[in-house]
Amino acid sequence: MESPKERWIGRDAGPIVRPYAVTRGRVRPRGLAIDLITILVATGRGPDGRVRLTREQRTLLELCRRPSTPADLASETDLPFRVVQILLEDLHQYGLIEELPQAVQDEQDGRPDPRILMRLLDELRRL
């Protein structure tokens, strides 16, 4: 019979942690609309004494030192996209990351620029 410790270690995956444990039980973001192509960047402020960041949040914050999209962050951290969304929302509420404005809209008619949409499609296919 396997010991409890052995059950939580996947042979190829390493330690197994359920997504809801990483998000403290939350399964949906609360407010901020973070989609696949939202560009986020760290503000450079450190967390105040009242905020304790999880290891995953610290990793995301470090990756956000350069402008990044949640799709890229999910890929780099091997976390599910929904988990990344929730953790990024927390970092945004703490004032540690901010959303950069995007030049996605065509100035003439307000519709998305087809070049950016094609680039997004290419990136999604790579995932």
Rank of each mutant, 00 (worst) to 15 (best):
R26P: 00
L40G: 04
L120M: 15
K5C: 07
L61H: 01
L60M: 05
D48R: 08
G10I: 02
D122I: 10
L121Y: 13
Q93M: 09
Q108N: 13
R82N: 08
Q57H: 01
V17S: 08
F81P: 03
P101N: 05
Q85H: 05
L117E: 14
R30T: 09
R18N: 02
Y94P: 05
P4W: 02
G44S: 07
P67N: 02
R52F: 00
T77N: 06
E76W: 13
G31Y: 07
L124Q: 12
Q105F: 09
S3I: 09
R7N: 08
L79Q: 10
E123M: 03
V104P: 00
G31E: 08
I97D: 04
L121Q: 14
L40R: 01
R7K: 12
Q85Y: 00
D48Y: 02
R24M: 06
E2Y: 09
E98S: 10
P29K: 09
M1R: 05
D122T: 11
E98N: 03
D109G: 04
L73Y: 03
L96H: 06
D122Q: 15
P67A: 00
I39C: 09
R65Y: 06
P29R: 14
R50C: 03
A103Y: 08
P67S: 01
A33F: 10
Q57R: 12
I116P: 03
D78G: 02
L87N: 02
M118V: 10
Q57G: 03
I86D: 04
G95C: 04
V51P: 03
A42Y: 07
I86S: 01
D90Q: 07
H92T: 02
Y20L: 09
E62S: 10
P15Y: 04
K5W: 12
L60Y: 04
E89V: 03
T59L: 14
P4M: 08
G25N: 06
V104I: 14
V83D: 04
G14C: 06
L120D: 12
Y94L: 01
R119Y: 10
D72C: 00
R28E: 14
R30V: 09
V41I: 13
Y20N: 10
I34L: 15
P70H: 00
Q57I: 01
Q93Y: 13
R24S: 12
R30C: 04
D48P: 12
T43L: 06
R50P: 00
P112W: 06
R7P: 00
R28A: 08
T59M: 11
A42N: 09
A33P: 00
P4F: 03
E99L: 07
T23A: 05
R115K: 11
E99Y: 00
G31R: 13
T69V: 04
L117S: 02
D90S: 09
R58G: 05
R30P: 00
L88S: 05
L124W: 06
R26Y: 04
I116E: 14
L100H: 04
D122V: 08
L61S: 02
R111P: 00
G49I: 05
R119N: 11
E2L: 12
R45C: 07
E2P: 14
Y94G: 02
Y94C: 12
R11H: 09
R65E: 14
P47R: 01
L61E: 04
V17R: 12
R125H: 11
D72S: 13
I37G: 05
L100E: 11
A33D: 15
P101R: 11
S68Q: 15
G95S: 01
R82E: 12
L40I: 14
K5M: 13
R18L: 12
Q85K: 09
V27K: 13
R66V: 14
V84N: 03
L87H: 03
